[in-house]
Amino acid sequence: HITLTNLITEETTHVVMKTDAEFVCERTLKYFLGIAGGKWVVSYFWVTQSIKERKMLNEHDFEVRGDVVNGRNHQGPKRARESQDRKIFRGLEICCYGPFTNMPTDQLEWMVQLCGASVVKELSSFTLGTGVHPIVVVQPDAWTEDNGFHAIGQMCEAPVVTREWVLDSVALYQCQELDTYLIPQIPHSHY
């Protein structure tokens, strides 16, 4: 019994991606959610070859190996599938703050939850000092008015990073160091 759908849910078992011959794909929301959820992320060749051979072929032979941004053979989907007991964002409290493009905020929040993070909706909701690490995620190029994202640091004691930190961490299924993704914050004294 196979159901085809464009939506990823808890029940989804396989995410089928358009890939090149070496099982490398573009980074899409579907790709990120498939990895975050520990699903099989496979090339569409799995479907076409299975139909051709009239049997369901082994997914291992068709698993996506990499993507056009993070590298052609990083094995993120395999790492995620085999590490669902070791979520990459466990112990983190993440607030997805401000506008985002090409990806609804609720989907970004679901993605970080699938990776083990707790989501907070407001900067004031962080449970500071409880052994949980707060992180604010923003997408600077989605902000149309002044660079308000440079002043988020005044509203909460949390590192502010770009959305790329989430996307790179999920694609590779390895929590990336914050340093290269940090957004400089204007210190309090400048006000």
Rank of each mutant, 00 (worst) to 15 (best):
T3S: 11
N6K: 11
N6P: 08
L7G: 04
T9I: 07
E10R: 11
E10K: 11
E11W: 11
T12S: 07
T12A: 02
H14S: 01
M17E: 00
K18V: 03
K18I: 04
D20L: 02
E22A: 12
F23D: 00
C25L: 01
R27L: 02
G37S: 10
G37T: 03
G38K: 13
K39I: 11
K39V: 08
V42T: 13
S43L: 04
Y44V: 12
Y44P: 01
I51F: 10
I51N: 10
K52A: 06
E53V: 09
K55S: 12
N58A: 07
N58L: 12
V64N: 00
D67F: 00
D67S: 00
V68Q: 06
V68N: 04
V69E: 04
G71T: 02
R72S: 12
N73A: 03
R79S: 04
R79L: 11
Q84T: 14
R86Y: 11
K87Y: 08
F89A: 02
G91R: 08
C95Q: 05
Y97N: 09
Y97L: 06
M103P: 02
T105M: 14
T105S: 14
L108R: 01
E109K: 13
M111E: 01
V120S: 11
L123T: 14
L123C: 14
S124L: 06
S124A: 02
F126I: 12
T127R: 10
V132G: 05
P134H: 15
P134Q: 06
I135H: 00
V136F: 11
V138E: 01
Q139R: 01
Q139L: 05
E145D: 09
D146G: 10
N147M: 12
G148A: 07
H150N: 05
I152V: 10
G153S: 06
C156F: 12
A158V: 04
V161A: 08
V161R: 04
T162K: 04
T162A: 05
V166G: 04
V166P: 04
V166Q: 02
D168E: 02
A171V: 09
Q174R: 11
C175G: 13
E177K: 15
Y181F: 08
Y181Q: 02
Q185V: 06
Q185K: 13
P187V: 13
P187A: 14
S189L: 10
H190A: 04
Y191M: 13
